[in-house]
Nucleic acid binder design. Structure first.
Length: 655
DNA sequence: GTAGGGTTAG
């Protein structure tokens, strides 16, 4: 029986062999042409035709799954492989590890990797890159050590993985170590390695080293990616002009910009003043034919929104036929960023209606929009939406919600969330400190700050800004100085314009005008309108004509068209009975064609946002509102006189 | 004919 069936089996095997080659080449072609679904379909048809896949089939199919990055398909293919005779093939198993890594199932990837009998450098690299992508820094280090212990020599891919890992944690010291190690094992000539080093150094803020690596790439080996790494590095650090310079050199060197070049340059235009530059890059994108790529359009939508031209953003959005979650989020973010929550929510429901699932970033931008307009009711709704979609396990979402609650005046809810969240980062603490400062809980803000320091967390420049703001608003002069000096001496943080501004404001409010002026005149960075403005306001409170005049003149020099300094100075003159000065300010305003636009505030009533300005009498119940307001300010003055004994809080702060 | 890798968006 055995002998009679043998020729038949052999015959079937050989026919399977030639057929399977045919299927393999078709599947390979589909994968290489970036049609992963077609590849999987071919695989299914192959099985339906009772053709057994071989050790060449599976790596192709696994690659298709990796491209789809859907754990559902990955698991299905893995089951097929386990049942096949090739489950222990090193090539096949390594692709399975990679497939799970790309489907973000790092647990499955590790299980397969761990059970492999045979592993070469490629298998280790696949796993290492997986940990890098997940941001598991400790696992990366652990795996790298282990690989050395079992005698696997790292190669250029290993170095790239390690480089990315340390650049994500912005560890310049370790980056230099890996750079040296790479030179030692001889992979520095690999242009891909050099490219990762360039962007890693840029991410760590060491542009000198980034340029050195760039210059060190052998002439003729430089690729568009090398240029993009340099341009992207500068662009990500908001150094638009350095990025643009490299862009010019790149063109001069005969390279044409690609999608990545355009995206990097566009994403560094985020202020209304940068709209012109953004448009310039847009025109370049059209010239090089990149303007139809979805990532470019998404970035354009975001660029136009951030630069204040939401209509252009919407025009692009409406003209698209393939919108991804990023597209919707960019547009929603555009509306949220300017406080147009009606439009943002309209798009949010439209997005859900077309079946596009909002993700973390979508929700984050809606939350921040609520904070901008002080829309507590809406904020609460998004809070519960985040909760029911499992997003409240995410630190960033919790931080945004804390910020939103604090900005809407609901400090209790902010505190509650802060104490129940499972993991608090420096950002969480900073947000809470700032929230307390904003809501007048100055002591609480300082207590929180000390608590975080005691817990061993390292406050950053934003934390110190929040603490200084608390001190300024509370009028805690000594505490303010203490924090300012601690920041410099203990934490080696260079104070920025905002920190100087806070200190100047604090000194001014406390009536130490001479000291404030001295402080501003001796600061190492050029004082801006904010600093001179707060000094001028302090002069108004303390009726100091002389220093007021000095500050006002600095402001006139910086921007002669700004109305506030003329008005403030006129008030200072008026309170000193200097009517000549008042008249002079009026004529200067006229001469410089200065017009005063009143500032606006927003308040949410019954879910609807209302805008109002100083002396706004437009509301139908205006009279009633102002009566209530008088009543409230009378009450607060009464309260103030009772709490005069509170340390450090002056009468002026309570006006 | 089979595996891991460089820049980039909300």
């Amino acid at each position: 029986m055995v002998t009679s069936s043998l020729p038949l089996r052999l015959n079937r095997l050989s026919s399977n062999c030639s057929t399977v080659n045919l299927w393999n080449s078709q599947i390979r072609e589909a994968v290489n042409k970036n049609h992963p679904r077609k590849a999987l379909l071919l695989f299914r048809q192959m099985k339906q035709n009772a053709i057994e896949p071989d050790n060449f089939t599976f790596p192709f199919v696994a690659k298709a799954c990796a491209k789809l990055s859907d754990p559902k398909y990955s698991q299905m293919i893995h089951t097929h492989i386990v049942k096949s005779p090739f489950f222990a093939d090193i090539f096949v198993e390594t692709t399975v590890v990679d497939m799970y890594v790309k489907s973000r199932r790092i647990d499955c990837a590790y299980r397969v990797f761990d059970e492999m009998r045979d592993r070469d450098v490629t298998s280790w690299n696949a796993m290492l890159v997986g940990f890098v992508q997940m941001g598991f820094f400790d696992r990366v280090c652990g795996l790298f050590c282990e690989m050395g212990l079992v005698g696997i020599r790292p190669d250029s891919v290993t170095i790239m993985g390690l480089t990315q890992a340390v650049s994500n944690s912005k560890n310049l010291y370790m980056l230099k170590g890996i750079h040296l190690f790479g030179i030692k094992i001889g992979v520095y000539g690999d242009v891909s390695v050099a490219n990762t080093w360039i962007s890693a150094y840029a991410k760590c803020g060491d542009f000198g080293s980034a340029e050195l690596v760039f210059d060190g790439i052998e002439e003729g080996l430089r690729t568009i990616v090398s240029w993009n790494s340099m341009i992207g590095g500068y662009a990500n650090d908001d150094k638009f002009f350095n990025a643009l310079n490299f862009y010019k050199y790149m063109i001069g060197d005969g390279f044409r910009p690609d999608v990545s070049t355009i995206v990097s340059l566009l994403s560094s235009c985020k202020q209304p003043e940068e709209l012109f530059q953004g448009k310039l890059i847009h025109s370049h994108a059209i010239q090089c034919g990149c303007d139809l790529a979805i990532s470019v359009i998404n970035t354009l939508i975001s660029m136009y929104s951030k630069c204040g031209d939401v209509d252009s953003a919407r025009f692009l959005f409406d003209g698209m036929h393939d919108r991804t979650c990023v597209t919707w989020t960019a547009m929603i973010g555009g509306y949220s960023g300017k406080g147009d929550m009606d439009a943002a929510l309209g798009l949010f429901s439209a997005m859900e209606a077309v079946g596009e699932k909002p993700d973390l970033v979508t929700v984050l931008s809606l939350i921040s929009g609520c904070g901008i307009i002080g829309g507590l009711e809406l904020g609460k709704w998004i809070d519960s939406y985040a909760g029911s979609n499992g997003l409240k396990n995410n630190v960033m979402v919790c931080n945004a919600l804390i910020d939103m609650h604090a900005k809407c005046g609901s400090i209790g809810a902010a505190q509650e969330l802060f104490y129940v969240m499972s993991k608090r980062t420096v950002v969480s603490w900073t947000t809470m400190v700032a929230g307390c400062a904003l809501n007048g809980e100055f002591r609480e803000a300082l207590d929180l700050f000390h608590e975080m320091v005691e817990l061993g967390l390292r406050p950053n420049h934003i934390t110190f800004l929040a603490v200084l703001q608390a001190c300024t608003h509370a009028g805690f002069l000594e505490k303010g100085w203490e924090c300012f000096n601690t920041m410099i001496d203990v934490y080696n943080i260079n104070p920025g314009l905002d920190h100087y501004s806070c200190m100047a404001d604090l000194l001014g409010r406390k009536g130490k005008l001479k000291e404030a002026l001295d402080f501003v005149q001796n600061m190492p960075i050029k004082p801006d309108v904010g600093i001179w403005g707060s000094l001028l306001s302090a002069c108004k409170i303390h009726r100091d004509v002389e220093i007021g005049e000095y500050a006002a003149h600095r402001l006139f020099e910086l921007d002669p068209h700004m109305a506030a300094p003329y008005v403030e100075m006129a008030n200072i003159y008026a309170s000193a009975g200097r009517w000549d000065g008042v008249a002079k300010m009026r004529s200067m305003m006229k001469c410089n064609k200065v017009r005063k636009f009143p500032g606006q505030s927003h308040v949410e009533v019954n879910g609807k946002t209302r805008t109002f300005t100083v002396e706004d009498r437009d509301h139908p119940e205006g009279i009633l509102i102002y009566e209530l307001l008088d009543c409230l300010s009378f009450q607060s003055k009464e309260d103030a006189s009772h709490s005069q004994h509170l340390e450090g809080i002056s009468d002026h702060d309570l006006r």
